[in-house]
Design a protein around this nucleic acid. Structure first.
Length: 472
DNA sequence: TTTTGAGTTGTTCGA
DNA sequence: GTCGAACAACTCAAA
């Protein structure tokens, strides 16, 4: 009996899933499969935090499929060999998937499509993660956009794709299933138990995704424009990991927001626009995860320093807003967007460390790690990417802290040893009088470090380095 | 081809 | 404490 193989990748949901909808429409039994590519040479292997998330997302996807009489086949290894075997054993004639946009994924899919088409398999790919395909969006000269505003204005003139309805009732199951491995055999969960903070905050399931979306729509969407920059409040959606793994689709998010509050959703949807823009750029400039978009930045005089990197990673920079952010990242696998900009700015500008070092760390520690978003974010801060921040724009981590965490609540939450400092000094403990420090049980250079690079010095170093870049 | 307008997220200084 | 100006000048998009 013919069958359709449905290859799940970063689209781990049953709703608003184009490839699944098409597979069901085929009218043949559908065999859902996930392949964990564990080959050592694969580029950008998932980081520890993302692997933790993936484990539960797969477990949950399997559970959802079982509710409708199906299941998820799990395999590990080279996708080509595994698909070949499964196609052969099941006598399936169709292979469907939703597209991914990372350079390695594009190369792999292209190769597989050609290979299996040649053996008589009908291979079809679908768009289920972006509003518009990167190659369909171009400026009037037929080139990719490199500035966000015209990009997004252009996108808004295109028809908004609608959420795809999936009739699971019509899903057919095969008479027999191909071999599957156990989820645990993939060894996605950490061997050392560091994931308690993640488990306390996140519910990495479809149900958790829907809850968070509803919560955001009900409680924060109306104030999103005002509160989105405040790490001490619940001002953002927290949807990024669900989007990253495809447990939520961008179309269904927009659908839910527009129904709830069409007016106040515009700002949030433009943030989804940045996600679109990031994928647009990654598609058109595939070397940007490793290399700066602006060529001259290859000559930037970074001052690589293992100790400074270590201090940044472990939240020992001496700037509370930075250290709180790094603690939040380590503990919860996530960091507030405003704080991401601040910690990145300090690493790249005050500390003069290459942005790639920061991008790698984020990649390993974020549950929402997404190659397109991560690349755009870091290149933007470093000033070497598209629509980048002007070079003289150096964030002052103290001012940023005082502006966006005005009571210091965010710092206190993640740096409990600073909790007793009054708000006047919470973002600059080194300026506090001895008596205040004593009262708050803070001992500089002991319980909390002084800034590893001073504010003025760091700013000057950054500006001088950029100045030098121009003259080189 | 040339020109013009505009560009996510700031900081510092001095009045 | 608040406000506006200066910072420095580049690239992209579109007319």
């Amino acid at each position: 009996m013919p069958a359709t193989i449905l290859w799940f990748r970063s689209d781990l949901r049953l709703d608003d899933n184009s490839a699944l909808a098409a597979a069901i429409t085929q009218g043949e039994p559908v065999i859902p499969i996930y392949i964990w590519d564990n080959r050592p040479q694969r580029p950008w292997p998932l980081g520890e935090a993302s692997r933790w998330w993936l484990h539960y997302a797969l477990e949950d996807l399997d559970a959802q499929l079982r509710k409708v009489g199906s299941r998820l086949i799990i395999r590990a290894g080279d996708p080509q060999l595994i698909l070949e075997e499964v196609l052969h054993k099941t006598k399936a004639s169709h292979l469907f998937w939703n597209r991914q946009y990372e350079p390695a994924a594009i190369a792999r899919d292209k190769k597989l499509k050609a290979h299996f088409t040649k053996s008589g398999i009908t291979v079809e790919s679908f768009n289920s993660s972006l509003l518009h395909e990167p190659w369909e969006v171009q400026n009037k000269s037929g080139k990719p956009f490199q500035v966000f505003t015209p990009f997004w204005k252009h996108c808004m003139t295109l028809p908004m794709p609608q959420k795809v309805r999936v009739s699971l009732k019509k899903l057919q199951v095969p008479k027999s299933w191909p071999k599957s491995e156990s989820l645990n055999s993939l060894e996605l969960l950490p061997k050392v138990k560091w994931d308690r903070g993640l488990a306390a905050l996140w519910e990495p399931t479809r149900q958790g995704a829907k809850k968070r979306l509803k919560d955001f729509v009900d409680k924060a969407l109306g104030r999103y424009s005002q509160d989105r920059d405040r790490p001490d409040l619940k001002g953002t959606s927290g949807l990024s990991p669900y989007l990253s793994f495809g447990q939520l689709g961008v179309r269904e998010i927009i659908d839910a927001l527009s129904k709830a509050a069409p007016g106040s959703a515009i700002k949030f949807i433009s943030e989804l626009g940045w996600r679109e823009f990031a994928h647009h750029l990654l598609y058109h400039f595939p070397s940007t995860p490793e290399k700066p978009l602006r060529d001259e930045f290859n000559r930037f005089p970074w001052k690589k320093d293992a100790q400074l990197i270590k201090a940044w990673q472990s939240g020992q920079t001496g700037y509370p807003i930075v250290d709180a952010g790094m603690a939040q990242l380590w503990k919860t696998g996530w960091m507030h967007n405003r704080v991401r900009m601040i910690v990145a700015s300090v690493l790249v500008k005050h500390f003069l460390q290459p942005w790639q070092v920061g991008a790698d760390w984020f990649w390993d520690t974020l549950v929402d790690a997404d190659l397109a978003n991560n690349t755009l974010g870091w290149q933007w801060v470093a000033g070497c990417g598209a629509d980048a921040s002007p070079y003289f724009r150096v964030f002052n981590p103290v001012l940023q802290g005082e502006k966006f965490d005005p009571e210091g609540d965010y710092v206190r939450r993640y740096l409990p040893h600073l909790a007793k400092l009054p708000k006047k000094y919470i973002h600059s403990p080194w300026k506090a009088p001895v008596s205040v420090l004593h009262e708050a049980d803070v001992i500089l250079d002991d319980t909390y470090p002084r800034p590893k690079v001073g504010l003025k010095e760091g700013r000057k170093r950054a500006l001088d380095a950029y100045e030098k870049l121009k003259s080189l």
